[in-house]
Simulated assay, not measured.
Amino acid sequence: MLTVLETCRISPPSATVGENSLPLTFFDIIWLLHFPIHQLFFYDFPHSKPKFTQTALPILKHSLSITLQHFFPFASNLIVFPNPTKPEIRHVDGNSVEFTVAESHLDFKDLVGNHPRACDIFYPLVPPLGHVTNASEFLSIPLFAVQVTYFKNLGFSIGITNLKSPCSL
């Protein structure tokens, strides 16, 4: 159903964000107990795969990079300390978002159609959030991941997964 063509990391342009941290409030912490949010957007693109990879894909990557300089929490990590210190969203130079490019053989017209269908056919089109890193003094949890899925000569989808926190939106 799905073939991964590329996995890379997209970061804000270098030296545009620097080191930043945002402490979470009591209300943000409540949202952390929920599962990540998955969003899926479909776009018509009746062109070949080479045209997609040479024109649309570089624009999507560049746009994401430019956007991350203004919305750096998406490229940041949630830092959770073992002691009673409040968690925080921390960005350091080099932080990035996992960006997956895939190709699917699912029926694009069926997916975008206005009719009921099993929701599990959409799951491969959204990316996993990423892996938790266990540093010696804290846990580092990614907040955002993107997957672009190409459907042969019909269109593409952009799947987004983000940790549900008002501070990260």
Rank of each mutant, 00 (worst) to 15 (best):
T53A: 13
K61C: 08
G155Q: 06
N83L: 13
H34C: 13
L111H: 06
P127S: 05
F35K: 13
G18W: 07
V132M: 12
I59A: 07
S136G: 05
S165K: 00
P128K: 15
S165F: 01
V126M: 12
P82L: 10
P50Q: 12
T85G: 01
P12S: 15
I121D: 05
V126L: 06
W31F: 14
T3N: 09
H34E: 14
A75R: 03
P142Y: 05
A102D: 09
N95K: 10
A102R: 03
T7M: 11
Y150C: 01
L68H: 00
L24S: 03
S63Q: 14
H70V: 01
D93T: 13
C119N: 12
G130N: 04
G159P: 07
F108I: 11
R117I: 13
E103H: 10
K164A: 12
P84T: 14
L5A: 11
P73K: 04
S63W: 08
P84M: 08
T16K: 11
P46E: 14
Y43I: 02
K49T: 06
A145P: 01
F144Y: 14
N114L: 13
P166I: 05
P73T: 08
N162I: 00
F52Y: 15
V126T: 15
V17A: 07
L40H: 09
S21F: 14
E88Y: 08
H70I: 02
P128C: 11
A135V: 07
L129I: 12
N20C: 14
S11T: 10
A118R: 13
H131R: 14
L169G: 03
H70R: 09
F52E: 09
N153F: 00
T16W: 10
V4S: 02
E6Q: 15
L57R: 02
E19A: 14
G18R: 09
F99P: 04
S168R: 04
D120Q: 13
S157W: 02
P124I: 03
T133W: 00
D120M: 08
A135G: 03
C167M: 07
I79D: 01
P166W: 00
K152V: 04
T16N: 10
T53I: 15
L32Y: 05
I160V: 15
I29P: 01
F144K: 02
L78P: 04
L154P: 00
V4C: 08
I10C: 02
S157H: 03
F138C: 12
L2G: 00
P166Q: 05
P142V: 09
L139F: 10
L139N: 04
Y150E: 02
E103G: 05
T149N: 01
E6S: 14
R117H: 11
P87Q: 11
K49N: 01
V126K: 04
V146M: 06
H47C: 06
